[in-house]
Amino acid sequence: MGSEFITRRSLVTGAAALGGMALIGEGVTGLVRPAVAAGGLRPTRTMRGGSNNYRPNAPLVDRLGSGFHVHGTVRQAGGGEPLSNVRIQIWAATTRGGEREPSNHGSVMTAADGSFVLEMDQIVPNFGQPHAHLAYDDGRFETVFLRPVMGSASDTSVRADFVLAPV
């Protein structure tokens, strides 16, 4: 965390740098560096603010509402094999309430192809940006918190992909 603070401070030099950070923040996949020479697929790094308002062990649900889909894939670092039966916890501010509203928290398991999807109510801007929170926090792999930002508040889905490294 300490190094992150310094990185942030040194980056905060002007609107241009900040605008650039916003663009990077919008593409979840941007965090997975494609050009890794050796060692294969790099693990996804936790995003700044990703764990805000996290409540561990969100209940497994079929859905939390309707009209909006949070989806993505979970793969293993290195070879990129899809990981099935992995629990992903999801929460967000929606039309039904904020990020601390219990009924905005739910977990889903990944399918055989490593994909997951959770239907919930429409995500709305919270603290100035429409975004979701996703967590892998079950111990088998390194914990990862993601905070994908929607391109537009009227989007009806948001995607976040995990590449997990074994502990």
């Binding site: 900040l18 603010g49 308002n53 904020g98 100035g128």
Partner: peptide, 21 residues
């Protein structure tokens, strides 16, 4: 009151949002 971690992050300049500065 709405979200303590987001507010503290913003004031400490460690928020992910590009406008916190």
């Amino acid at each position: 009151v709405t979200s303590p971690p987001d507010t503290v992050d913003a004031l400490l300049l460690v928020s992910p949002t590009p406008f916190s500065v």
